[in-house]
C-alpha cells in the first residue's frame, strides 16, 4: 500500500520519534512511502545544525539516515523552513544572507505545500504525526 506521511512536530517531540518508528515498520511490512512531508515545527527535523547530548536519541540523524538509506522523497515546506532559519544553498543566495551557511540536511528538498497535497492524492493512506 502507498503511504504519504506528514510530520508537524520538532525532533525533540515524542511524536517525531513515533513517526520514524511507524515509517520503519511500514517499509518492513513491504509498504511504500511515496513522500514524507515536513511542515510547521516538523521542518526542524531537516536541520543539519541540531546537536543532541550523547545519551539522548539523535532523531535528526536517524531521519537523515533513514531517508538516505531508503532513497525516500523527504520534502520540507519552504515557507515553514525559511521562517525557522532552515535554508539551502539556493535560498541563502536568493535572500542574500552571506553570513548564513546552508543548513538543510543533505537528501532533503525545500518545496511548497502543493507537494503535500499531491502526495495525499497519490497515496492510499495519509498519516499525520504531531503534537506530543
Amino acid at each position: 500500500m502507498k503511504f504519504a506521511i506528514a510530520l508537524f512536530s520538532p525532533p525533540h517531540s515524542p511524536s517525531s520519534r513515533r513517526a520514524l518508528r511507524f515509517s520503519e515498520a511500514l517499509l518492513s511490512g513491504g509498504h511504500d512511502i511515496i513522500r514524507i512531508f515536513f511542515y510547521q515545527d516538523g521542518v526542524y527535523n531537516a536541520s543539519a545544525n541540531i546537536v543532541m547530548s550523547q545519551d539522548e536519541c539523535d532523531l535528526t540523524n536517524e531521519w537523515r539516515e533513514f531517508i538516505k538509506q531508503h532513497r525516500l522523497d523527504g520534502v520540507v515546506c519552504i515557507a515553514a523552513a525559511l521562517r525557522r532559519g532552515i535554508l539551502d544553498e539556493q535560498e541563502v543566495q536568493r535572500h542574500n544572507r552571506p553570513t548564513s551557511t546552508p543548513n538543510l540536511s543533505e537528501g532533503w528538498s525545500l518545496s511548497g505545500l502543493g507537494q503535500f497535497h499531491e502526495a495525499a492524492q497519490q497515496a492510499d493512506r495519509l498519516i499525520c504525526f504531531g503534537g506530543h
Binding site: 508537524f8 511507524f22 515498520a25 511490512g29 509498504h31 493512506r125 495519509l126 498519516i127 499525520c128 503534537g131
Partner: peptide, 19 residues
C-alpha cells in the same frame, strides 16, 4: 506494537490524527 499499527492503518480507510 508498530507492525500492528501499520496493519491497522491499512485496514481502516482513513486515519485521523488529533494533532
Amino acid at each position: 506494537g508498530y507492525p500492528e499499527f501499520v496493519k491497522l492503518s491499512c485496514h481502516y480507510l482513513r486515519i485521523n490524527s488529533w494533532l
